[in-house]
Design a protein around this nucleic acid. Sequence first.
DNA 1: TAGATTGTTAATCGATTAACAATC
DNA 2: TAGATTGTTAATCGATTAACAATC
Lengths: 222, 222
Amino acid sequence: MPEIETDSGAFAPPGGAPPAKIPKAVIKRLSRYSRVLQELELKGVEKASSRDLAEALGVNSAQVRKDLTYFGQFGIPGVGYYVRELRAQIKRILRTDREVRVALVGVGNLGSALMSYGGFQRQNFRIVAAFDSAPAKIGRMQNGAPVLDIARLQEELRSRAVDIVILATPGEAAQIVCDLTVKAGIKAILNFVPTRLTAPPDVAVHDVDLSIEMESLAFYLR
Amino acid sequence: MPEIETDSGAFAPPGGAPPAKIPKAVIKRLSRYSRVLQELELKGVEKASSRDLAEALGVNSAQVRKDLTYFGQFGIPGVGYYVRELRAQIKRILRTDREVRVALVGVGNLGSALMSYGGFQRQNFRIVAAFDSAPAKIGRMQNGAPVLDIARLQEELRSRAVDIVILATPGEAAQIVCDLTVKAGIKAILNFVPTRLTAPPDVAVHDVDLSIEMESLAFYLR
DNA sequence: TAGATTGTTAATCGATTAACAATC
DNA sequence: TAGATTGTTAATCGATTAACAATC
């Protein structure tokens, strides 16, 4: 039984054991394992060793094993991991074994883009609503989701049982929307606005900053 | 004079000194410093201490100072950093003190989205061309850039003096396009395709995996 | 059984941070 | 000068990896 710490970003194992602190990087890799396992399953592969998985991801095999043991023992010495089973376990751990309901705030260029992007739907994520403040946009349907008045954000997030909010507002609005979102009980935010957001420690905020990605790439131009 | 190592991801300081190895994370932060300094400059602030910058970014002040000394000495003890000057230096280091020419490959949902996204233009990046294989798309203009035939990728990248390529193709095409891009002499790729790309060590590939960001967020739903 | 691979500990590596002499 | 803040070293922290006994 591993040492237990209580901290934000905690994970409660299925057995009901106390939560252990899991590095964010481990969770990201878990999600990558999930994708590789999906591909293997589609190919009809039944077993995979930590070495196989490591190669597919470009990481060290010890890391694969260590990552997985944060959550339990899923492998069989001398054999490896059963692809189907491990995949199911990881999906359960990540909570993507069911539909995840997503709302998007800010139906501008990037927001619209993200709504039409098919990549989310594919993985059991469903954008159930969008929000904006522009009267011209409110009331329309976009990619199967209604565009609602930002003024009704809190009640709509609640009544539509939204799990995750995508922020794609102008910079000035981001913190305000973030606060409202948190008040509505949302625990996970995907932030595309290049603003540092302040949120309580029990709310997970993932920042995706396209400008930073681009600008830091320029450094590598010889 | 700091210790010098030669390695990929190298940076040649202005003086012409040998390149030192710079962690990717430092470059990302440099880009963030740049943005904060821009805001300060707009506000008319003349000086900022490492503490000021650290607070704006939510990092440690020693880290700010250390990051900067990878590239030189820009501060004045007892005073801090001159905002305008430091910003100019960082832009020079990042090579964003001039227009950076970008091409996008794969004009699907996400690709179109990225083209209409204003965030890139703002920072001196200009999408000068897009590429696709669909005859219906080829020949059109989209957001001010021509959609060209993917078959002409190599020569067009060269003749249009493209610096950075954005990959937004289907998964199957990603590695093929990556190889062509590398052959055309491109040194920096922003990859939105959820495929692990293989590229020579002197080519910088930044992966932005929206599905992974989303999926790993689901973990934090209590 | 012999061979393979896990789970886990201990060693290594690298990145962050504290501390402080140098200096404006 | 006194006060403030840099640049830089050494200490700390955390994450990655090597190694190997346990086990299928």
